[in-house]
Nucleic acid binder design. Structure first.
Length: 887
RNA sequence: GCGAAGGUGGCGGAAUGGCAGACGCACUAGCUUGAGGUGCUAGCGGGGCGACCCGUGGGGGUUCAAGUCCCCCCCUUCGCACCA
């Protein structure tokens, strides 16, 4: 054979990356009359660890969409940037003394290098970092918008203080009483905090979810916002002036309220507890306070509580009912107190059962009266009100309305909408974040003329916004980044930065900084016009591209980032800065890529095998054999030591020992992280890109398997060989020509439907076919190169050039297909007898039933199943199937 | 407990109600190649010498025809977690 050049990604990939970097074919430019696409990736936090194979998954998906769109004539905005504030750089600074800005710069350089090595078609001229002062300026500018609208305020609120991190955390950052990052214990304590009034937007955040092309994330946000309608109502405490205000979604059941419960944190607890109960209540409240949220909920079903000894009057019945304290009532939801209707609420029912409190039926399924005391569970469905005075006979909905009317008429309370969503604690006691652009007057102590040197009081009650013209408020250079054990943060130590004089008066800057979410709340907007120092962005740039058509990122941001960003967007909408109610039209979460599948078995201390079902974790997180105190160790196995038996993997040498076969999340601790650099070195960036897309549906969680990469590499090799061997303009045989056109159709449709895995398999089929043909015409090879190019852009460009392409194929028109060639005139269709496949026939697509009958008669394999039988039914679906039903 | 997604070969996965397992990995055999991770050809769900039979978590149902639609159950993963 002649010497043909081989496919060498190590040569062609840098070549084209250089071309793209210098020629900038991916700059986002608007041309009148062209459709537009704004496709956005969730920008990464540039960690020191660099990219892992999870990053390129979503990035490759959007890159394919963008490259395809450009070839379809779209003007495309596809930017990338860095979410570069964050704790790790600061932690690194604490550990090593390296300034976070240095670490951040290095990490960004590394991330950029890695992303460019993957050949993504970003418009790098729009690159931004949230840590850039020119970006921070506008983040602070948005904060001032919030501040001036009364949406940013200081509050002495109970917050999640994490002593180990030395900062407060948003509720969303606390999981089971521990920090999301690092899993450190979190305690609740009241502190002065900047808080954003996201609850003012709760209804709009909820309502505007309708109509978005989003996955189940919409439901997650709905649950997170947690809107519930009901009423507030006061219950008078017997013998006190005090009233207990409760929130209920079931006002119709008030006649059935047989007791009340206060949260242990409730301010009235101390006031109304009788002397006889004081000791018990104090002890209980103390005990609960000591417990973390985790322990409080880990108790699960067991209800605990203590009576206060006090009674309140049920306003509906006029009867006194006991008031209890119990931890299942949360101080921070609703009013921190409930009326308990054990007949019609599961928790109240359970509680009543544990403490022998009366259970009364006030809602009936069919109007019939029952004895609730004998019930096994509460009746929580809607029904008809009974034993409820003026509500009797009313359906639940009507009864609710009537009861609320009554409560309002009596002046006891009002209709009320309650949300789970709480306001967003927005300050962090950290250095590496955006300074909050606010300062406070300072009162000097007697004889003190400089607060840096003497006693003073900072008037936190008189916040003053920094003038827009003075933005950005820059971070001071600091050498010591350690968080304090109080919430003033490391910036409090930068005295010359913190205190300043203006018109002869001393002021102090806010020393808290913004949380990492701030920068990511609006970066998609800055991409529109990233170098504009006069405005946040130009209106024309906004009109060119907004809103974001496609937003791809991990589902871990389903509530946190996406809710906050939507909130800011709506505030900016109210300010007239943006013109759409919602920023992200279509949202897709790429599935997590797990590590390689691992096979593990267990052995006890006698060296005997233990199946995973018999292994449990004891209180010290040590593994032991269930029901014994034998310690158990993990044994890692190779795949070839195991086999499948009855749906489970077992040891080949000991088939009664079950082996765990599962893929785990990639983590440094587990040592199963795959670095894309290594894959690129071995197989090339295009192979990595294609493999990530070939692994399965974009949204699915998938285990990584390095072995599989060779498969796509072979495919790319073959595609290369087919194209470099292409010659002349001879005709393609009919079947191959049809396959080519069908592939063009399928690849285009699959890209638009984000079904990259099936697009790739279609191209594999095409390449396998073309590889069998002696002389592939150049035109077919050019089509193949174009189809391939969104997935394997370096290969696509190189082949295009070798096939005589004049310039980069980045804007070359996407191939079209001939509709008549994608539908076959003659199709092979199955012949079934009683629904079972017996033969096959080749029939014209427009064949008649008579043709079909003739085909059946001519199908020798089918005859034995027809002989001597009576035809009951003859089914013929043209182009699909023949089914003869006989009896 | 609640909510969502999902269960198809050894593995990743295909399949507008119409030939289950496309495409790829791994594996087996042969060829080739002087070999050290990437060549070529063939085979590859299970059972049976075979014609055939059985197979999409389990059980029912609808239909000429069900992985796909309906009902019940089981399991896995993810999210939320006493929200009044």
């Amino acid at each position: 054979m002649s010497e043909r050049p081989r496919y060498t990604p190590a040569d062609i990939e840098p070549k084209w990356q250089h071309h793209w970097r210098t020629q900038q074919p991916f700059r986002a430019v608007r041309r009148a009359g062209h459709p537009t696409l704004c496709a956005l990736d969730m920008f990464p936090y540039p960690s020191g660890a660099g990219l892992h194979v999870g990053h390129p998954e979503g990035y490759t998906a959007t890159d394919i969409v963008c490259r395809h769109a450009r070839m379809k004539g779209f003007d495309v905005l596809h930017p990338m940037g860095w979410d570069s504030f964050g704790l790790p750089a600061e932690q690194h600074a604490i550990n090593t003394g390296t300034h976070p800005s240095v670490t951040t710069r290095n990490n960004i350089d590394n991330f950029r290098r890695q992303l460019q090595a993957l050949g993504f078609s970003y418009d790098w001229s729009r690159e931004l970092a949230t840590t850039d002062e020119r970006y921070v300026r506008w983040t602070q500018w948005i904060f001032l918008k919030l501040f001036h609208r009364g949406l940013a305020f200081q509050a002495e609120t109970p917050v999640n203080w994490c002593p180990a991190l030395g900062t407060v955390l948003a509720n969303e950052e606390v999981i089971d009483g521990r920090s999301e990052r690092g899993s450190h214990p979190v305690v609740r304590m009241p502190l002065r905090q900047w808080t954003l009034k996201i609850t003012a937007y709760a209804d709009r955040l909820l309502d505007d979810l309708v109509g978005l092309d989003w996955p189940e994330t919409r439901e997650k946000q709905t649950h997170w916002i947690g809107r519930s309608e009901g009423a507030e109502c006061d219950f008078a405490v017997v013998g006190h002036d005090a009233k207990i205000r409760v929130f209920t979604t079931r006002p119709d059941t008030m006649f059935g309220a047989t007791y009340m419960v206060l949260a242990p944190e409730h301010p009235l607890v101390a006031q109304i507890t009788t002397p006889a109960q004081k000791a018990a209540v104090d002890a209980y409240v103390l005990e609960v306070a000591r417990k973390s949220d985790m322990e409080r909920t880990a108790l699960g079903k067991k209800k605990s509580g203590v009576p206060t000894g006090a009674f309140a009057t049920n306003p509906a019945t006029g009867q006194p009912i006991p008031v209890w304290v119990a931890d299942f009532v949360l101080g921070h939801y609703g009013t921190g107190a409930i009326m308990s209707v054990p007949g019609h609420d599961e928790r109240d029912f359970e509680f009543a059962r544990v403490f022998g409190l009366p259970i009364v039926q006030v809602v009936s399924k069919d109007g019939a009266l029952a004895d609730a005391g004998t019930w096994k569970e509460a009746f929580v469905d809607d029904g008809v009100a009974v034993r409820s005075g003026f509500l009797d006979g009313k359906q639940t909905e009507a009864a609710k309305a009537a009861m609320i009317d009554w409560v309002e008429a009596q002046g006891l309370g009002t209709r009320k909408v309650q949300y789970k969503l709480r306001d967003w604690v927005f300050s962090r006691q950290r250095y590496w974040g955006e300074p909050i652009p606010v300062y406070f007057p300072v009162d000097l102590g007697a004889g003190v003329d400089d607060p840096r040197k003497g006693a003073h009081t900072i008037r936190y009650d008189q916040p003053i916004a920094v003038e827009e013209s003075e933005l950005p408020v820059r971070l001071p250079d600091l050498a010591d980044f350690k968080p304090g054990d109080d919430p003033s943060g490391p910036l409090a130590r930068a005295l010359d930065w913190r205190f300043f004089q203006k018109d002869g008066r001393w002021f102090a800057r806010e020393t808290n900084t913004m949380p990492q979410w701030a920068g990511s709340c609006w970066y998609y907007l800055r991409f529109l016009d990233p170098h504009n120092d006069a405005r946040i962005f130009d209106d024309a740039a906004y009109d060119d591209w907004m809103p974001v058509d496609l937003y791809v990122g991990g589902s871990e941001h389903a509530v946190l980032h996406l809710l906050y960003a939507r909130f800011w967007h709506k505030v900016l909408f109210d300010c007239g800065v943006v013109k759409h109610k919602e920023p992200f039209q279509k949202l897709v979460h790429q599935g997590l890529i797990l590590g390689e599948v691992e096979y593990t078995a267990y052995k006890d201390s006698h060296d005997a095998w233990v199946s995973p079902d018999d292994v449990e974790e004891d209180a010290d997180h040590e593994l032991r054999k269930k029901g014994t105190d034998l310690g158990v160790v993990v044994v890692k196995l190779r795949a070839d030591q195991t086999q499948k038996k009855g749906g489970k993997f077992v040891l080949i040498d000991a088939p009664d020992v079950v082996v765990d076969a599962r893929a785990h999340k990639m983590s440094k601790a587990r040592g199963n992280v795959v670095n894309p650099d290594d894959i690129i070195e071995r197989y090339g960036a295009d192979a990595l890109r294609v493999f990530e897309m070939f692994m399965g549906p974009l949204e699915a969680v998938k285990p990584w398997a390095t072995d599989g990469v060779v498969g796509v590499r072979r495919f790319l090799d073959r595609a290369w060989n087919v194209c470099v061997a292409a010659e002349g303009e001879g005709p393609l045989d009919d079947e191959s020509l049809r396959l080519l056109h069908k592939t063009v159709q399928k690849v285009g449709a699959d890209i638009e439907g984000l079904r990259f895995n099936t697009a790739i398999s279609a191209m594999m089929i095409l390449v396998n076919r073309l590889a069998e043909i002696e002389k592939v015409p150049v035109s077919a090879a050019r089509t193949l190169a174009l189809l391939l190019s969104p997935f394997a852009p370096h290969l696509g460009e190189e082949l295009w050039e070798r096939l005589g392409g004049e310039a980069s194929l980045a804007h070359e028109p996407w191939p079209t297909f001939e509709p008549s060639l994608v539908v076959d005139d003659v199709v092979e269709i199955p012949i079934q007898v009683n629904g079972k496949l017996r033969a096959k026939a080749r029939l014209r697509r427009d064949a008649s039933e008579a043709d079909a009958r003739a085909a059946v008669a001519g199908a020798a394999e089918a005859q034995p199943f027809l002989a001597g039988k009576t035809e009951k039914k003859f089914l013929f679906v043209p182009g699909k199937i023949i089914n003869v039903v006989v009896g």
